[in-house]
């Protein structure tokens, strides 16, 4: 994969090639025609943002917050109660205080650790890290 010292043309080509990787990272699944459109769109957008290349930003500190502010701390006290039933009432599928998702762990085998079905599942959805 070309790195940041590659030319804009190389990076645009790389962006097209990357579309499948980006779709995977962003957890999006696109039909063929939509994928082609977004691939072409991405080329043009990368051309737009490549205009930043000509700016001299050496020695400039990145700005994270428009007022250069810092996150204030508050006292470490409980200030509200979470009403689990109310929030889970929004879920497409929930039961007994749990959010329901397709099975991610095969039935526990006779020995050894449970097998996780999905290699790409985000970490929080794995056993013990319930969302």
């Amino acid at each position: 994969m070309p790195q940041s010292d590659s030319t804009p043309t190389e990076r645009r080509a790389a962006a097209s090639d990357m579309i499948d990787k980006l779709m995977r990272l962003a957890a999006l699944k696109l039909e063929a025609d939509e994928r082609e459109m977004l691939k072409d769109n991405l080329d043009r957008i990368v051309a737009l943002i490549d205009a930043m290349r000509s700016a001299d930003t050496d020695g400039i500190e990145p700005l994270d917050h428009p007022l250069d502010g810092v996150q204030p701390l508050r006292p470490d006290q409980v200030t509200e109660d979470i009403d689990r039933d109310r929030f889970q009432g929004l879920a497409p599928a929930a039961r007994d205080g749990l959010y329901l998702v397709p099975r991610v762990v095969d039935a526990v085998a006779s020995a050894g650790a449970p097998r996780i079905r999905s290699a790409n599942a985000p970490r929080r959805a794995r056993p013990g890290k319930r969302a």
Binding site: M1, P2, Q3, S4, R11, A15, M18, I19, K21, L22, M23, L25, A26, L28, L38, L42, I45, V46, I49, M52, R53, A55, T57, I60, E61, P62, L63, D64, P66
Partner: peptide, 24 residues
């Protein structure tokens, strides 16, 4: 997708950090 691209390994400095420097 653009945001994922700008934040991905190898592009983070060229795009995201560069944009934040320009923001300053």
């Amino acid at each position: 997708l653009v945001g994922t691209y700008a934040l991905s390994v190898g592009y983070y400095d060229a795009y995201y950090r560069k944009a934040q420097r320009l923001r300053r």
